[in-house]
Measured scan of single mutants.
Amino acid sequence: GHYRIRINGREFEIRGISEEEIRHLEEALRNGADEKILKEIVDRLRG
Rank of each mutant, 00 (worst) to 15 (best):
E26C: 13
N31H: 09
E19V: 12
K36T: 12
L29C: 05
I5T: 02
L45D: 03
E40R: 06
A28L: 15
D34E: 11
V42W: 11
A28G: 05
F12P: 00
I41P: 00
I17H: 02
I7Y: 02
E35H: 12
K36I: 11
G47M: 11
R15H: 15
D43C: 13
A28D: 02
I5S: 00
A28C: 08
E13K: 02
G9Q: 02
D34C: 04
I17R: 02
I37G: 05
K36N: 12
H24M: 14
F12D: 00
A33L: 14
R6M: 15
K39Q: 15
R46V: 15
E19Y: 10
E19Q: 12
F12E: 02
R10S: 11
R44W: 12
R30G: 08
N8Q: 04
I22D: 00
E13C: 13
K36P: 04
E11F: 06
G1F: 06
L29Y: 05
I5R: 00
E35I: 12
V42E: 04
D43T: 06
L45N: 04
D34G: 14
R15S: 10
K39M: 15
R46M: 15
I22R: 04
I22N: 01
E35G: 07
R46P: 05
G32H: 06
L45A: 05
K39A: 13
I5A: 01
I22V: 08
E26D: 06
L38F: 08
I5H: 00
R6W: 08
V42L: 10
E19I: 13
S18L: 04
R4A: 03
N8T: 01
I22G: 04
G16L: 08
L29V: 13
L38C: 05
G9T: 01
L29A: 05
N31S: 13
N8D: 06
E40L: 12
R23P: 02
V42T: 05
E27H: 10
G16M: 08
Y3G: 11
G1H: 07
N8L: 03
I5Q: 00
D43V: 06
R23K: 14
E27N: 09
I22F: 14
N31W: 06
E19M: 12
I14N: 00
F12R: 00
G32Q: 06
G9Y: 01
D43R: 10
R15C: 14
A33P: 06
G32C: 08
R23G: 10
G47E: 13
H2I: 14
G1T: 03
R30Y: 08
G16T: 05
H2D: 15
N31C: 13
E20A: 11
E20P: 06
R30Q: 11
E13W: 08
I5E: 02
R4E: 08
K39T: 13
N31F: 08
I17F: 03
I22A: 07
L45W: 08
E40G: 11
H24T: 14
D43Q: 07
I22M: 06
R6G: 02
D34K: 05
A33E: 09
R23Y: 12
K36A: 11
L45K: 03
I7L: 04
R15E: 07
L38S: 01
L38P: 01
K39H: 13
E26A: 05
R44S: 09
E40V: 11
K36Q: 10
R23H: 10
A28Y: 09
K36G: 09
A28N: 05
F12Q: 01
A33V: 14
V42F: 12
E13I: 14
R46E: 10
K36S: 11
H2V: 09
E13D: 04
L29H: 03
E21H: 05
L25N: 00
I14V: 05
I14D: 00
R44A: 10
G32I: 10
R15G: 06
A28S: 08
R15N: 09
S18A: 06
N31A: 11
R46W: 10
G16F: 11
E20C: 05
E27P: 01
I37K: 08
G16R: 02
E13V: 12
N8G: 14
N31M: 12
